[in-house]
Computed example of a mutant assay.
Amino acid sequence: MRRGVLEFCVLALLRDGPRYGVELVRELSSVDALVTSEGTIYPLLSRLRREQLIATVWQESPSGPPRRYCRLTEAGEKALAEFTAEWGRFRDGVEYFLTSNGGEQA
């Protein structure tokens, strides 16, 4: 399940501005349930780029080699908006079954 929402967490981080891979790993890992590694993020970023949800550009780094920065594309913004609209309904549905008798009948 975490894998299914991780890409949308990445898109949400990019909504706030361009970031590079290690920066994304660090920000995601600041939330216990989303701790991840470069080995997970870089393939995910490659897939998001192939799907044209993000675009990348190389930029010089003030400390070290150039970094590949990712930013949201228009398609990425649309995908994130659609997920955000559905997420509340999904979360509420799961919460219903986890915190009540759900569909259980007396």
Rank of each mutant, 00 (worst) to 15 (best):
F8I: 01
G93V: 04
L44Y: 10
L48W: 03
A75K: 11
S100C: 05
R26M: 01
R71V: 03
P18F: 10
S63V: 05
L44N: 04
S61W: 03
R3M: 07
G21V: 10
S61L: 07
V31I: 11
G64S: 12
F90L: 15
A106S: 12
E51Q: 06
E23V: 03
I54C: 11
Q59T: 04
V94R: 09
E86S: 13
S30F: 01
Y96K: 07
D16G: 05
R91L: 14
A85T: 06
S61T: 06
P18R: 02
E104L: 15
R2I: 02
E23L: 02
Q52R: 07
L6R: 12
G39V: 08
S100R: 07
R49Y: 06
V57F: 08
E95F: 07
V31A: 12
T40Y: 10
T36A: 10
G103W: 06
R15G: 01
G102H: 00
F8M: 04
R15D: 10
G21N: 06
Y42C: 10
L28M: 11
E60V: 04
L98A: 14
E27R: 00
D92A: 15
F90S: 08
P18N: 09
F83I: 04
R68Y: 09
F97P: 04
C9L: 04
V22A: 14
V57K: 13
A85Q: 09
L80V: 12
T40V: 14
E51A: 14
A106Q: 03
L72T: 02
P65S: 11
L80F: 07
E77P: 02
G103T: 02
V25F: 06
P18M: 08
R2L: 15
S37D: 09
R50I: 04
V5A: 03
L34D: 00
A55N: 09
E74Q: 05
I41G: 00
L48K: 01
E27F: 00
R89S: 15
R2Q: 15
L14S: 08
C70G: 15
G64C: 14
A81G: 08
V10H: 00
R68K: 12
Y20Q: 11
R3P: 07
I54E: 01
V94G: 08
L24V: 13
V57H: 08
P43R: 05
S100N: 11
R26K: 01
V22H: 04
T84N: 10
Q105E: 12
G4W: 01
R47S: 12
D32R: 15
Y42P: 05
V5H: 02
C70P: 04
V31K: 12
Q105W: 14
V94M: 11
T99N: 05
S37G: 12
R2E: 12
S61F: 13
G4T: 10
T56A: 13
V25N: 02
S46Q: 13
F97I: 09
S37C: 03
A12P: 04
W87K: 06
G93H: 13
G4P: 07
P66V: 06
T40D: 15
F83P: 01
T84K: 06
A81F: 03
